Amino acid sequence: MLPWIELDRATIPGDGDELRLKQRGQEFSIMLGSNELMNSRLSGSEEALATLAHERIAGGKNLSMLIGGLGMGFTLRAALAVLPGDARVTVAELVPAVVDWARGPMAELHKGTLDDPRVDIHVGDVGALIRSKKAAYDAILLDVDNGPDGLTRPSNDSLYSHTGLRAAQAALRAGGVLSVWSSAPDSAFTRRLREVGFAADEVNVRANGKRGGARHMIWMATKR
């Protein structure tokens, strides 16, 4: 079996922990310590994050979508595949090196999506961007941690708190949807979504889509 090769390391701003980009043949992995945040062989649930959200907002004009976390670009690719030509997609990525990796060693995975005219790349904290907006988005998609807690960086906890969820609600247009990816269920998070006024559904998806794989969770929370 081919060995893993470490291609690069990147410090997470404001945190000090490091992301590591690794490659084995055509396979890529992004690691945080001993935790694998994402792997290029597993994309089904990240793609579902976009397609499920689009199903809730389809038919609107000049749709605006915010994706929190660029990662390996699976969610962005899936969103662009279903969104119309007049849509706008903002991708907020905290770690500048992740954008560099998308244009460099992982360019084949991203397939030019960063250069799509519908796409804007915002290098910075998605939480701060959300808090700065009012009724700006039809959909907000969050895949910045392995679930609704600050695994990647502790300050991300605020995204999933009552205060953070109210900020997301304010940033959404009427009928907009907050879509959150997780590697596992979290009943407390479902309660918080409903407590702030979202109509929240839990959707089980497979890591590799129709080909199976581990079970992941996506919350679909609609602004009433």
Rank of each mutant, 00 (worst) to 15 (best):
I140Q: 12
I140G: 09
I140H: 04
L141S: 13
L142Y: 02
L142M: 11
L142Q: 06
D143L: 07
D143W: 06
D143V: 07
D143E: 10
V144K: 01
V144L: 09
D145T: 11
D145N: 14
D145H: 08
N146P: 07
N146V: 03
N146C: 01
G147M: 09
G147H: 12
G147R: 07
D149I: 06
G150N: 06
G150C: 06
G150K: 01
G150T: 03
G150S: 06
G150E: 05
L151T: 14
L151Y: 15
L151V: 15
L151D: 14
L151E: 14
T152P: 02
T152F: 15
T152G: 03
R153G: 02
R153C: 11
S155H: 13
S155C: 10
S155D: 13
N156W: 01
N156V: 02
N156T: 03
D157H: 11
D157F: 03
D157W: 00
D157Q: 07
S158K: 15
S158Y: 11
S158F: 12
L159E: 11
L159G: 09
L159F: 07
Y160C: 13
Y160A: 13
S161M: 06
S161L: 08
T163C: 04
G164W: 01
G164F: 01
L165P: 11
R166C: 04
A168C: 15
A168M: 15
Q169V: 02
Q169T: 06
Q169L: 13
Q169C: 02
A170V: 15
A170G: 14
A170H: 13
A171K: 13
A171S: 15
A171P: 10
L172I: 09
L172R: 08
L172S: 06
R173H: 01
A174S: 13
A174I: 00
A174W: 03
G175H: 01
G176V: 14
G176Q: 13
V177D: 05
L178V: 00
L178M: 05
L178I: 04
L178D: 02
S179L: 08
S179P: 08
S179H: 08
V180A: 05
V180T: 04
V180W: 00
V180N: 06
W181A: 02
W181L: 06
W181K: 07
W181Q: 09
W181I: 03
S183E: 10
S183N: 14
S183Y: 15
A184F: 12
P185F: 10
P185D: 08
D186I: 08
D186M: 11
D186A: 14
D186F: 00
S187G: 07
A188T: 11
F189A: 05
T190E: 14
T190N: 05
T190S: 14
T190R: 12
T190P: 03
T190F: 00
T190M: 10
T190K: 11
R191Q: 14
R191L: 14
R191E: 15
R192D: 07
R192G: 00
R192Y: 03
L193E: 09
R194H: 00
E195R: 09
E195D: 15
E195G: 07
E195M: 04
E195C: 01
V196K: 10
V196H: 04
V196L: 12
V196I: 11
G197E: 02
G197F: 01
G197V: 06
